[in-house]
Design a protein around this nucleic acid. Structure first.
Length: 212
DNA sequence: ATCCCGAGGG
DNA sequence: CCCTCTGGAT
C-alpha cells in the first residue's frame, strides 16, 4: 500500500465520519473519561452514555468512587455488560488514583497499565481521548479486519499491523485513525454482510474487487 | 445465533 | 495459549 492511497483513504473516511474522533465529549473530566473508557469494553457508546449521569452524580470524584459499595456500583453500570468485573475494576482504579497518583490520572502507558481494567487497548484510547497523546494505534478486531481488507497490511499479528499502520500515517493522525477505522468497521465494513455498496472507499478496496 | 472500541487469570 | 465474564446490537 502506498502512502498516497493510504492518505486518501484516511481523508475520505474522516469526511464520512465527522463525529468519529470525539466519542467522549470535552466537558468530561479526565477522571470521567478514564472510568467511561474502562466501562466501554465490549459494549456500545449508547449503553455507557445511558449510565453516565447516574454514575457521576453519585461518585463525582475518585475518592467517592474509591469508597463506593460494589453492589451499588454494579446496579448502576449493569447495562454496560461485564458489570461485576467492571464494578471491581473502576472502584480499584479510583482507589489507585487516590493512593498512588494524587487523585489525577497518570499520563504514561506504563502507569495507565497499572490501573485495574486498563489494558493495552484502553490505555491507547485513553492517552488520546483524555490527554491528546498519539501514543499508537489501537488494533482491535475492527481495525484488524478493515486494514486487511483495504490492503493497508498483510500481517496477522496485531503488533505488526499496528507497526504497518504507524509507518503508513504520521503520528498526529494515529488517534484519529483509530477512531475512524473503528467507526467504519462497526458501521459499514462489518464482519458479515459488509455494506460495500455504500462504502466510500470501495473503489480502492482489494476485498471489494475480489468479492464483486 | 453471533459478535463486540478487552482484560485478567489459569 | 485458552477460558471466563455480560448485555446489547444486528
Amino acid at each position: 500500500m502506498d502512502r498516497v492511497t493510504a492518505a486518501w483513504i484516511y481523508d475520505t473516511l474522516a469526511e464520512h465520519y465527522p463525529d468519529a474522533c470525539t466519542p467522549l465529549p470535552f466537558f468530561h473530566s479526565p477522571f470521567q473519561v478514564l472510568i467511561l473508557t474502562i466501562l466501554s469494553a465490549q459494549t456500545t457508546d449508547q449503553a455507557v452514555d445511558k449510565i453516565r449521569p447516574a454514575l457521576f452524580a453519585r461518585y463525582p470524584t475518585p475518592a467517592d468512587l474509591a469508597a463506593a459499595d460494589v453492589h451499588e456500583v454494579e446496579k448502576i453500570i449493569h447495562s454496560t455488560g461485564f458489570y461485576r468485573v467492571k464494578a471491581r475494576h473502576i472502584i480499584s482504579t479510583a482507589a489507585m488514583l487516590v493512593n498512588r497518583f494524587g487523585g489525577t490520572i497518570p499520563s504514561t502507558m506504563e502507569e495507565l497499565l497499572l490501573l485495574p481494567g486498563v489494558g493495552r487497548k484502553t490505555a491507547n484510547i485513553l492517552l488520546f481521548h483524555a490527554l491528546g497523546i498519539n501514543a499508537g494505534i489501537a488494533v482491535d478486531t475492527h481495525v484488524k479486519r478493515l486494514a486487511g481488507r483495504l490492503g493497508l497490511t498483510t500481517r496477522i499479528e496485531q503488533d505488526l499491523i499496528e507497526q504497518d499502520l504507524m509507518n503508513l500515517y504520521p503520528q498526529e493522525r494515529w488517534g484519529d485513525l483509530t477512531d475512524i477505522m473503528i467507526a467504519h468497521g462497526r458501521r459499514c465494513c462489518t464482519a458479515i454482510n459488509p455494506h460495500c455498496g455504500v462504502c466510500p472507499v470501495s473503489n480502492v478496496c482489494p476485498f471489494y474487487q475480489q468479492t464483486r
